[in-house]
Structures are given as structure tokens and as C-alpha cells.
């Protein structure tokens, strides 16, 4: 029962099979990038990719996820390198950031099918609710991500995680004398 794949790993949840996928991801797998906003499928903060579809994970029980492939924002890219993540950074889209993982997941599904969507296609795919009002920048950022996917534009707007102090000091003259303890030898 309730065996499926989350971010390329096989999982089996020892939870009530009626448990919505959202809570299995958040409270059992600690994949907290997927957010709870309403529990009624309206806001889209819990959007994940299931077999290439954008699905509101608060509306799908783990029983009904049996055998399927779930991808959360944590596995969208290993280094914030997904074109949407870079475009969101370059266009300064996020404000509070709570709805952003869900928006990015919904947009990633759209762009995988159609890297050159029209405004109407974007509007139809992104039905998430954002209360901060990132909407005025959203279509532009999604289209920019599409251009990156099509190879028409390259940006490096947000750095990857895990840069060591030594690496940072090599490109930033103001940095030096690492504060961190020396690396352990393998």
C-alpha cells in the first residue's frame, strides 16, 4: 500500500491511506518546500509534479498516489539552476515567497510541454493565488524562463547553494581568511 516515488526515491508511508500527499511530503518526508495554504485545492501553494502533471497535493490521498512519480520543488534542480528559478531571481519576482514554490512547480509543468506559451496559456496554467501580488511580473518571468529553455537567453541570477568560503574568496576580493574550521581530510 501507498508505495510510490518521491524525487526519484521509492517511498512507503506508514500513514492513514487517506492522508493527503501534502502532509506525507511535509510531515513524514520533511519536504517542506511544498506549502499548505488552504487545503481545498484553491491556492496552489501545495502544487507538485506528478507524472508530468501539476497537481495540488492537498487534494490527492497517498492511496491515490500509488505507483506514481512525484517531484517536489526540492528536486526541480540541484542548484537553483532551473530556468524558472533563475528567471524569478533575475526579475525579482518573489515577495513573501510562500506561494512561490507552488507557482514555480505549476509553471515548470507548463514550460516542459510548451517553452513558448502565450499569455492565455500562462493564465490558464497558473491559477495559484498570491496575496503579495507578484502577478504583474509573473508572465514576463515565465516567458523569460521559456527563452532560457529555448537557448535564446542565458542568465545567472541566483548563486547555487553550498559555495565554500574558499570558493567565495576567489571571486570576491573583500573576502579572505576563512572563518570556518579547516576541512576534515577524507
Amino acid at each position: 500500500m501507498t508505495k510510490f516515488t518521491v524525487n526519484d526515491r521509492p517511498v512507503q508511508y506508514r500513514m492513514d491511506p487517506d492522508t493527503p500527499l501534502l502532509w506525507a511530503l511535509r510531515d513524514a518526508s520533511n519536504l517542506t518546500g511544498t506549502k499548505y495554504g488552504c487545503g481545498t485545492g484553491d491556492c496552489g501553494a501545495c502544487t507538485v509534479d506528478i507524472d508530468g502533471e501539476a497537481v495540488r497535493s492537498c487534494q490527492l490521498s497517498i492511496a491515490n498516489a500509488e505507483g506514481r512519480f512525484v517531484t517536489t520543488v526540492e528536486a526541480l534542480s540541484p542548484d537553483r539552476g532551473h530556468p524558472l528559478q533563475q528567471a524569478f531571481a533575475a526579475d525579482n519576482v518573489s515577495q513573501c515567497g510562500y506561494c512561490v514554490p507552488g507557482v514555480i512547480m505549476a509553471a515548470s509543468v507548463l514550460l516542459r510541454r510548451n517553452s513558448n506559451p502565450t499569455d492565455e496559456q500562462i493564465d490558464a496554467a497558473i491559477t495559484n493565488i498570491c496575496r503579495c501580488g507578484i502577478y504583474p511580473r509573473l508572465r514576463g518571468a515565465i516567458k523569460r524562463a521559456g527563452r532560457i529553455m529555448r537557448g535564446e537567453e542565458r542568465i545567472a541570477a541566483a548563486p547555487p547553494p553550498g559555495i565554500t568560503p574558499e570558493e567565495a574568496a576567489r571571486s570576491v576580493p573583500a573576502l579572505g581568511r576563512s572563518a570556518s574550521p579547516p576541512k576534515r581530510q577524507p
Partner: peptide, 23 residues
Amino acid sequence: QDLARLDTPSKIDGTHNFAADVR
């Protein structure tokens, strides 16, 4: 100047810790 927001990186990759994300 329009500097990069310091909270952007964690907000685009799902790692920004809100109160419900504390473990």
C-alpha cells in the same frame, strides 16, 4: 541600486523556513 534581494535564493528553491517548516 536594484541589488539582489537577500531572501531570494531560499525563496525560489523551497528552502526558506517559515514557521511550519521548522523541524
